[in-house]
Design a binder for these strands. Structure first.
Lengths: 334, 334
DNA sequence: AACCATGGTGGAATCGTTTCCATGAGTGGT
DNA sequence: ACCACTCATGGAAACGATTCCACCATGGTT
């Protein structure tokens, strides 16, 4: 390949070049006290040699690692990509590296990734938790500094979540206002908060309760499609569906098209999470916008600023009306 | 918060618990030779104490870090998200952590991120390079093990790229076959390979060459929209455009809609990169599909397997015909 | 003049691991 | 019975930083 690799230069060499001891170099570089003269010499030598302190050495001694870990179910999902972007954006301003892992919503894989992170002596972790709260006990006992994003599965861990309750309520109210009574929720594994909010909203508006009106999919696109198609096929009486995420919404549109049910004439659709293509879709999708990037950013702030950590911060959602919802048809479809 | 944090247990404690020396523990755990009996004792003690070797200690001693760094222009872009997913997927099977950074296609930010990575003693890096090849000289001299993905800016660095030349040629031929002669390329900063392929394809088919027919945008959505709108507005004579990425394609559809130019009646559109919503779009978009995930996976393989590294691996693209291209209209629009 | 406080400075210990090297035990061959 | 050889084993030296602590010079106070 190219020329000879040059060995990394250490604090010792800087000390030698500056004619001082290693302790002094360390002190100067980390803002400790030193005379103006020595400071000058050290800084000059460090700059001349292009010295970069080894994070390995520092972290080993300090017994803590700077970086932060991030665990998301699926980086391919626009929502989590934006969340990740928020985390990276905040971390960059602190100069902290971020190690990302994909859990696929599988608690086992999540546990495995947490193990890897602990091995790296990462002590700060942001996670969109896949399993229930209990599996986090060992990690917390190990001194890991955890913040949950998007989902909240333990009360004793700071969390940054969208306002699911308000979002769902807004969606249901909007649909009910259009005359819909049989409204289905097409959800993703691990959205217990939102499902609870959904059934509560249904109840509060006096709509008929029906356990079968909430359908769950695993986190793959195939599973989402199967769930959507199943719902549309087996329940011709539902006239409106709320999709709990952008891949669910995508699946719903695809399935509807395949089964020749028209949106919004036959069924109305509201999708959680506003994505760029929602406007491009035919028809343009009415959505509940979620501040994905903000969620990530705030979570990163929380995990980086060690100080007093509020238990939960809830970020607002917003209904964006486009063209995928219409008034209820007088006759059930099919 | 919760109970008392338990200190991390070290190899020393395992040695003590097993009644052997630290050297023996290390040897057993890394597959060295040891008697069956001691091996048994050590393994038992390690399991009982739930011992996890500290990556910090190991890496410091070994003078190399396991993890791999990944630099992408924009994690929010589906293409790079899928590429990232490929890298993560491969890295996971090796148990290697991946540190991700977002460059925003800004060479300065890229250099800064490389600096952070070097500080962490990362010695393996996958990058979608933003700048030209020269800025990589210091990193290479520092012994960094670099693989380029998606773009190839140095011949002496292994690269995994889509087959831009074939992809562009396929697109141009398809468009020319429909009768189009004024074809524009809407590109992104840093796609010199593809632009060259475009002008070559135009020339080889005997179409009129025109430097103004390639338009560049920076990597933001706003910039992409401005470029697309500008092209559509100022050049009513172009009847087909090739968008060099999914955010460019999205911008083109949006701009066309805003300016009331119909796809495909007024202009035909081919988009690089197949994304789930391309099918949902109105009209469904004809695309050149790129194996984004594979690119990431292969790049990770290359950077993890130190052995003989082929200079460049090129992955095929594929034309997926949908409904965004039509025959050339006889009269120029407007 | 003796003493103490102050503040800059460098040597050495430390973090947790791997790996070199010396030691000792056991074995087979002459 | 002795030698040569293998093999398992543990002590100790790295790796590169931070930080404790002892040291010294200076200057101000009693």
């Amino acid at each position: 390949m190219s020329g000879p690799v040059q060995r990394r230069i250490t604090i010792k060499e800087v000390a030698e070049a500056a004619g001082v001891g290693v302790a002094t170099v360390s002190r100067v570089l980390s803002g400790g006290s030193a005379s103006a003269e020595t400071r000058e010499k050290v800084l000059a030598a460090a700059a001349r040699l292009d010295y970069r302190p080894s994070a390995l050495g520092r972290n080993l001694r300090r017994q803590r690692t700077g970086g932060i870990g991030l665990l998301v179910p699926d980086i391919t999902d626009s929502f989590y990509a934006r969340l990740t972007d928020g985390v990276l954006s905040c971390a960059r301003s602190y100069g902290e590296p971020v190690t990302v892992g994909v859990t696929g919503d599988d608690p086992e894989r999540e546990a495995e990734l947490i193990g890897t992170l602990i091995e790296q002596s990462m002590d700060r972790l942001i996670s969109v938790p896949s399993g229930d709260g209990e599996m986090w006990a060992p990690a917390l006992r190990a001194g890991l500094n955890v913040v949950f994003a998007d989902r909240r599965v333990r009360a004793d861990v700071p969390s940054v979540v969208p306002d699911d309750r308000a979002g769902v309520l807004t969606a249901v109210e909007y649909l009910a206002g259009l005359g819909h009574r049989k409204i289905a929720y097409l959800g993703r594994h691990g959205q217990s908060q939102r499902v609870a909010a959904f059934t509560a909203a249904i109840a509060s508006l006096g709509l008929p309760a029906d356990r079968d009106l909430v359908v769950h999919a695993r986190s793959s696109r195939d599973s989402a499609y199967a769930a959507a198609a199943g719902l549309l096929q087996h329940r011709p009486d539902v006239t409106a569906v709320i999709a709990g995420g952008n891949v669910l919404g995508e699946a719903a549109v695809l399935a509807a098209r395949e089964l020749d049910v028209r949106i919004p004439r036959d069924v109305s659709l509201i999708m959680f999470d506003d994505v760029p293509w929602a406007e491009l879709c035919s028809p343009p999708l009415t959505v509940i916008a979620q501040p994905a990037q903000d969620i990530g950013y705030r979570a990163a702030e929380l995990v980086l600023r060690q100080g007093r950590r509020p238990p939960t911060v809830t970020l607002p959602t917003k209904l964006v009306v486009r063209a995928s919802c219409g008034p209820k048809v007088s006759l059930p479809r099919r």
